[in-house]
Every structure is written in C-alpha cells, then in structure tokens.
C-alpha cells in the first residue's frame, strides 16, 4: 500500500477508535438513560390518556391538549412562570457574578464570606426557612416594622396578590449562592498572568473585566444561564412551601409546575399533568435551543 492509501484507510479506523472511546466513556450514562427513558416514555404515553392514578389509563388522543387551550389557570400559571423566569434569572445571575468578582479579588477571609453568602442556598426551601419568610414578610413582620421607621407603610408582602410574586423573586435572588460558587470556580480557572500582562499594559479594571474576565468566563456564564432557565421554568418548591401548595394569594404564585402537581396529585388528573409536562419540556427546549444558537456569538472556548 502506498503511504497516502494507508492514511486513507487509517482515517476511518481512527474515527472508529474515537467512536469507541466516546461510547466507552458514556457507558454509565447509557445505563442511566435506560432508567430515565422508561418513565419518560411512560409519561409521554400518559399525556395522551385520561389517567386518574387509581384506575387504568384510557386513551384520549389530543383531548388533554385541547383542554389546555381553554384552561384559564394554565394560562395564569404560564404567565406567572414567565414573569418569574424573565425577572429572577438575569437578576440573580448578575448579583451572583458581581459578588463572585468582588470576592475573587483577594478579599481577606474569603472562605468566611463565601460560606456566609452561600448559607441561604443551604437553607433554601426548608420548612424552617419558609416559616421565617412568613414572619419576616408578614403584614406586621420585621420588614414592615423596619420600613415603618422610615415612615413607609409596607404592603402585605405574601398575602397581597400584587406583591406575592415579587416577594418570591426577592427570595430567589437571595439564594444566589449556587451560581456564585460556580462563577468563583470559573474565575479561578482564569490564569492570573492574563491580568498581570494587561495590568502592565495599563488596562483599567473595567477594561480587564470586559476583555479578559467576560470572554474567559463565558462558558460558565453560559452554563449558569442555561441551567437557571431550565430550573426556573420548573420552579416548584418555592411556590409550594410559601403558599402551602395553593399557588395563592389568588393564584398569583401559581407556578406552572405547581399547577401541574395540583392536577396530578390533588385532583387525580395525571393524564393532563403529563401533557402539561410535555408542553413545558417543549417550551424549555425552545429556550435552550435559542441559548445554544446564540452562544456562538458570545461564548468563547479555548479550542
């Protein structure tokens, strides 16, 4: 065989070897996929049935999806979820990035600050913390007491339908610890020499942030964005615990996932809940796809 011919024959072989290595590394994941795919398809099937949990599902074709069109509560839950996502995701990511950058700049006692700022995320949706929120943001709670000092009459944060969702957004922003930790880990991977070099060139802090930090951190920003969007569309616990599962006051915190849960488990309509789940999957997939498509314009990988 001539040398070029050998190279030609070797290319597919190398590709096959690459394929094999890839699949080998993915082996556990393929196993896990089996675990996930069975319930996945089960729920897809249920989406086209009438299923009350207690008697066998009955095929219903597109009935569930047709019902969605006229379901006012479903539309309300979509509205709540979209507002929540569009406001709280950028807000909490900005706060997380800001604090991470401040903490990254050689702050003394970094470990302590990092732990303290992470605390709310640790406490998160625990029952105890929800009790605290109720009592902080109650009609005559501490927050309103503090506002009264400044002569401001605070609203009924958790019981007024005009304020409850904002209070939940505030609660969410307060737990910025998780994305903050990821940002910190990402910042740590940016080689210090880049900053040293640009400092020698006399670049300002802002300039460094724009031309070093942002591009080099962009894969991590991208991760946090995609991940927060997915998680935010699926928000459940926060809405559940604060409203005791009702989505109240007056459905103002009726998250999509909370309504889905009510349908499935409180109203014994798992068929409808399943079709809601697949609609949500498509919505999230759409947003994630947009993220990935726009990523090529602002996310920089080193390779």
């Amino acid at each position: 065989m001539t040398a070029p011919a050998r190279a030609l024959a070797a290319a597919p072989r190398r590709r096959r070897r690459q394929d094999r290595a890839g699949y080998l590394f993915l082996l556990p994941w393929f196993g896990g996929l089996l675990f996930m795919i069975v319930p996945f398809f089960a729920s897809l099937y249920l989406a086209f049935t009438e299923y009350d949990l207690l008697t066998p599902p009955r095929w219903a074709g597109l009935d569930n999806f047709r019902e969605m069109l006229g379901d006012a509560l479903l539309h309300q839950s979509l509205k709540v979820t979209f507002i929540y996502t569009l406001v709280s995701v950028p807000l909490s990511l900005a706060v997380a990035l800001g604090v991470a950058i401040v903490l990254d700049r050689g702050v003394r006692g970094l470990a302590v600050y990092r732990s303290v700022y992470y605390l709310p995320s640790l406490l998160g949706g625990s029952v105890a913390i929800v009790m605290l929120w109720r009592y902080l943001f109650g009609y005559d709670g501490i927050v309103n007491d503090a506002l009264a000092w400044f002569g401001i009459t605070g609203p009924a944060w958790t019981t007024d339908p005009d304020y409850a969702l904002s209070t939940l957004i505030l609660l969410h922003v307060w737990t910025f610890g998780a994305p903050m930790v990821i940002f910190l880990a990402g910042l740590r991977q940016i080689p210090a020499m880049y900053y040293e070099a640009s400092a020698m060139d006399g670049a300002s802090k802002w300039r460094q942030f724009r031309s070093i930090t942002l591009p080099l951190l962009s894969p991590i920003i991208f991760f946090n964005l995609v991940q927060s969007l997915i998680a935010s569309f699926q928000t459940f616990t926060q809405g559940y615990v604060l409203s005791n599962g009702s989505g109240g006051p007056a459905d103002s915190t009726l998250f999509y996932n909370l309504y889905l849960y009510q349908k499935g488990f409180a109203e014994f309509d798992m068929g409808y809940a399943s079709s809601m789940a697949w609609l949500l999957l498509m919505i999230i997939a759409g947003f994630t796809a947009i993220n990935f498509l726009t990523a090529r314009f602002w996310v920089f990988y080193d390779n």
Binding site: G138, T158, T159, L242, S243
Partner: peptide
C-alpha cells in the same frame, strides 16, 4: 376582623403559629 392581607390563608393550622 383584620384588614385585607393581615391574615395569611396559607399560614397553616398549627396552634403555635
């Protein structure tokens, strides 16, 4: 009875609360 918003419907029914 208290003004609007004073009582939280979802406060739970535990006596201590």
């Amino acid at each position: 009875v208290p003004p609007a918003g004073f009582i939280d419907q979802n406060n739970g029914t535990s006596p201590a609360q």
